[in-house]
Nucleic acid binder design. Structure first.
Lengths: 251, 251
DNA sequence: TCAAAAGTGTTTGGTTTACACCCATGA
DNA sequence: TCATGGGTGTAAACCAAACACTTTTGA
């Protein structure tokens, strides 16, 4: 097997094209975003990368996310393109590049980039974040801790959030963001967090169950205070089917 | 004023990046798509183009569409990115390029392209289609006449259609696709065409009016057979407001 | 034993659906 | 004059919002 050249050989990538990933996870009743901290700085960025000359965009995104999370077969979708001239000017990574002496690094990062934004949904409990060669840290942040990212990454993040909200009835959010087994309150909390509003506990449950996309398990989630809630899992077959038409309704 | 260099100078554009436009119009109760026919062939393509080095993606799309339709301020949105390796191999335009002797043309068209797909909504009655330098014809086609486009343009078209259907409650489709004054049956027909199913005439009208986004005019549309229907126009202020939350409902 | 979370059920009111009826127009 | 399309109205079915009561649990 031929080992891929290391990422420091920038000539293997398409010029002018990059990708940025907004990786969503859910933990402690909070929507989390995966961020990297650029080496020798306090600056935060979305995980991103470039596209190899013989690689599809989706493969590139998968590769990048695999490197950042250790996961395979991540659920991801392109949601927008960011291509304003000047958007990638003064990229702080360029400084890091100079320091680490990557070949043609400065020239590369001074290009104008058209960046394809992907959003990804991952199981928080399974992801193992790890930084790339430009960063010294890669961790989950709460949404309210993402206020000043580099370049136009806040714009990209907001665009992803907007897409997530619009597609809440058309994408398998719960399936990808929650562990295999979860409780109804956890699922509700996820929806409340994404939609940014409270939902009635009883109506939510009735509605969710009416979709016939959940299997109720015998087990309950013990350990927490208060009454132990039942565990559910997704009925994948019915779920995919139901999403074809959208989980109709305006929450 | 400095005149822009002619399009035959390909070096003024970003490498590896292109854009393809799915332009929708509505006429004779049919959804129409703008297509170009490649010179010296019977091959049809979506209108497309490249991105100047100092130009935003949106400006590039606007420029291309202005050239193809004569219209300014066209409603357009990026809806997807198409970047599979090989998608732009064997581009039939390359032959045309050889014939017309464009500088570096063959090399240019043999690149791998990441193409940004835009969909546009235009008033059929106002657009004046005209071909680009690679085509000898630019005309409206019905959806059912678009079966074998070049490269992956059918895939792009289908993706645009899917987006249109998903966004039917969130985008000002009627406002951009219909003339200023239109009848309720025309509006209904537009929705039926996009959604691909029949709607009840009376319920459609009640619902549309309940959104408060239409001004009913005194005039009626005369000339057709049968009872003359009233004309309406959009109440732009209310329309924009209403679209913020989506025209709730599952048709 | 009590506050807080979770399971289950019911009432109510608005919305959507499925219709019926009348009017206008050109063939 | 009549078939067809358009304007207006209504009853029934359905669904979603609001709310009550009971059960379980750890502090």
């Amino acid at each position: 097997m031929v080992r891929p050249k290391p990422d420091t050989d920038l000539l293997q990538f398409l010029k002018h094209v990059s990708l940025d990933c907004v990786v969503f996870g859910f933990h402690d009743n909070q929507l989390k975003i995966l961020l990297t901290r650029i080496k020798n700085t306090e600056l935060w960025a979305l995980p991103g990368g470039f596209v190899r000359k013989e690689e599809s965009l989706e493969s590139a995104a998968n590769r990048v996310l695999n490197e950042r999370t250790g996961l395979d077969n991540i659920f991801l979708k392109p949601f927008n393109v960011f291509g304003d001239p000047g958007r990638s000017e003064k990229n702080p990574i360029a400084n890091e590049i100079i320091i680490s002496g990557v070949n043609n690094g400065l020239e590369w990062f001074n290009q104008r980039f058209i960046s394809v934004g992907f959003y990804a949904l991952v199981d928080f409990s399974k992801a193992v974040p790890s930084p790339d060669i430009f960063s010294d840290l890669c961790i989950w942040k709460n949404l309210n801790e993402t206020s000043s990212l580099i370049l136009d990454h806040n714009k990209i993040l907001n665009s992803a959030l907007e897409t997530l909200r619009l597609q809440v009835n058309y994408q398998p959010l719960g399936y990808n963001l929650l562990p295999e087994k979860f409780t109804m309150p956890e699922l509700q909390n996820l929806y409340e967090t994404i939609l940014g509003k409270d939902l009635d506990r009883r109506n939510f449950q009735r509605r969710m169950l009416s979709f016939k996309i959940l299997n109720k398990l015998e087990e309950r989630k013990t350990g927490g205070a208060h009454k132990a809630p039942f565990l559910y899992e997704f009925n994948l077959q019915n779920y995919r089917q139901a999403l074809q038409n959208g989980l109709y309704g305006g929450w």
